[in-house]
Amino acid sequence: MAEQFTVHTTTPSEAEIERERARTLAEGRRKHAVSSAVRYAILAGVGFLMLYPLIWLIGASFKENAEIFANPGFIPEEPTLDGYIKGWQTSTPYTFATFFWNTFLIILPKVIGTAISCTAVAYGFARFEFPGKRILFATVIATLLLPNVVTRIPQYLLFRDLGWLDTFLPLWVPSAFAGDAFFVFMLIQFLRAIPRDMEEAARVDGANTWQTLVFIVVPMLAPALISVCLFQFMWTMNDFLGPLIYLSSVEKYPVSLALKLSIDTTEAFQWNRILAMSVLALVPALTVFFLAQKYFIEGISTGGLKG
């Protein structure tokens, strides 16, 4: 009986505690549910605001001109390819095919030059000791922060004296000399984090440093190198000021300059042509980004964190 009694007196309080705990848990869960609902709402709202202009742009490029400034929705009432067909022709003797081809001609050598020169230079910094290394490395950081605006005019004069104006050379050559400090820095950071065992083993087996670089280091560096190429691709694709300063004949214009030209020259009210060509101009960058976004996110995270 005594046993039963104690059981009786304790059971309600235990149950009470249990009930209390369940209540706080449920409340906590509800609070959590509410706050994550708020978070999702903010994230989705901001995301929509950010992406709607792009969605609208795509829709608007298929609209009639009259509809562009009359319909805030993105679905065209009477879809037309007019903007694409006429926009592609441009008001110049050239079509956008020429301008895309020029963009490609600027990007390809630039990306290759960047990849090769930055790899070699980063290897030199990360794996060797040499006189003046500390000072040289400090200049990498300094160039990283140096505003281009201060070197642009003498660079222009230099390229003019070399007879390189209105060619792609001013856009290619500086990059082939590891001119983009950001990439050198990123690769150095990446290399420093890679263990050297494999390289040392290769050296013991009689490989020279160059062979070690090509056969051991480059494959390990591949993810970072892909980031470098992708960023350089994007930046060159978006570059406007460089071509604006150095290229003067329309036949050499890349897409960025051609777009600006079509704003200036397309007769008024032909908005859909310009919007259609803007969509096309964004397609390469978007495609590359969605195919390889992992490398972008990683590249920017490592490059940034270690700074």
Binding site: Y123, G124, F125, R127, F130, V184
Partner: peptide
């Protein structure tokens, strides 16, 4: 000790 310099030479020139 100058081998490293050879690798960073393009950077120095640039």
């Amino acid at each position: 000790r100058y081998l490293g310099l050879a690798y960073v030479a393009p950077y120095i020139a640039g």
